[in-house]
Design a protein around this nucleic acid. Structure first.
Lengths: 224, 224
DNA sequence: TGTACATCAGTGAACGCGCGTTCACTGATGTAC
DNA sequence: TGTACATCAGTGAACGCGCGTTCACTGATGTAC
């Protein structure tokens, strides 16, 4: 949607945004600024005016690009899901080809993305945007990201590494676990295990636990 | 701290709070009203003035009982943790006495409390109150609740039902899983598994997965 | 190459609003005598 | 049992603030001729 406009000033190499009347790519700049603000104040407390202020544009300029404050927030969330999907794809490309390895990498990627992009995750799963039907682009981006987890899980079922059964339910179990842990970390609730190293040490035990729990015959699960 | 004052009007059985000058137990009423408001608007967007308005008291009356808006929020969180601890105790009393059953019940209780008290959990783990050192009562209440999970886990280790190792780390794994799932549910992110029945159906698989993962020799874990 | 002009992307002032907090106050309460 | 009075728990007006959104506007841009 964003169509960069090359301004004369920009062609001349002007740096300070306020030197020019046309910003060039205000839409993108707003999304970035809003994300940064969310990182500082959270997805409820950030303000449209402050985002505009940071870019050096008047507080009503955003309305040229977004219908409302919420619409800008939805754009931040959508961009977050798209980046997340790209991140998952990149990790998958680098993983060994067997289904179990790929599933393991999916889980690791989820937690890692959450750790490195807490603000983005906060917006992506913000209560304010819980009704995604009002933002079709966001809804689509979210579904596309989730599909990756589910698809890998089905692959594992076919390989006998994950037990048979409704893949949606299994995906839900898996997702609950990794997402849940991620949220805990990013809400700084693990203050009693404070170092990043300690937190990272939790990831593999959790994944092992999870794999054990959803494991199929090829994973030699014990009789129950 | 709350010392109920029986007013003449109250003794006479007056109902409407606004009929009397002294409320009687404004402190408690404020905590309740704030919790209700958080349920509607979230732990950031609720307002002190609206809480006072609902009780039928002027917007500055709360300052008689709390130093600030945040102090009231902290009181809500503290009360949440205390109620949570009571809830865990009640469930534990009703559980079979073997360690594994008790651990299972702890997990179930956690998820159930979260499901039934989403607003309270939102405040208890709100980012705004992440620095609990400023509210010693809150800090103590939180630690007391967490201790229950850890203690049961240690019991399980002694019974050989959970594997040996740093109990704090194991508690962290377990806590991450149940808390994480709970948060997912209460943030309404499981919209694609919408019915309460479907959500409840996730609980046991998740607990089974978790127990499998932290299981000790007495749980017949497979060789790895 | 030069110019007229429609279109687009900003500006600046103003709106109404509700917030958290402070202040000096007053009405109700319980207790000492 | 009655009364004086210190204490406590409210009131009401006011503060300064920053917010989201609307409005009529103007400056910059690119294109048709």
């Amino acid at each position: 949607v964003a169509k960069p406009v090359r301004t004369a000033a920009r062609r001349r190499g002007a740096r300070k945004p306020r030197d020019v009347y046309h910003h060039g790519d205000l839409r993108r700049a707003l999304v970035d600024a809003a994300l940064a603000l969310v990182a500082e104040r959270g997805p409820v407390a950030w303000t449209l005016r402050e985002a505009a202020r940071r870019i050096g544009v008047t507080h009503n300029a955003p309305y040229r690009h977004f219908a409302s404050r919420e619409a800008l927030l939805a754009a931040v969330a959508e961009e977050g899901f798209r980046e997340f999907a790209r991140f998952l794809d990149a990790a998958d490309d680098a993983a060994p080809r067997d289904p179990l390895s790929r599933l393991r990498v999916r889980f690791r990627s989820y937690v890692r993305f959450a750790r490195d992009n807490p603000a983005a995750l906060g917006v992506m799963f913000s209560h304010e945007l819980a009704d995604r039907s009002r933002y079709p682009g966001l809804q689509e981006a979210a579904q596309e990201a989730f599909a990756r987890l589910r698809d890998t899980l089905v692959l594992c079922q076919q390989g006998g590494v994950v037990r048979a059964g409704d893949p949606d339910l299994l995906a839900l179990v898996a997702w609950s676990t990794v997402h849940g842990f991620s949220m805990l970390v990013l809400e700084e609730q693990l203050s009693w295990a404070p170092s990043e190293h300690e937190r990272d040490a939790l990831v593999e035990p959790i994944i092992a636990t999870l794999l054990q729990g959803i494991g199929g015959p090829a994973l030699e699960r014990p009789g129950r």
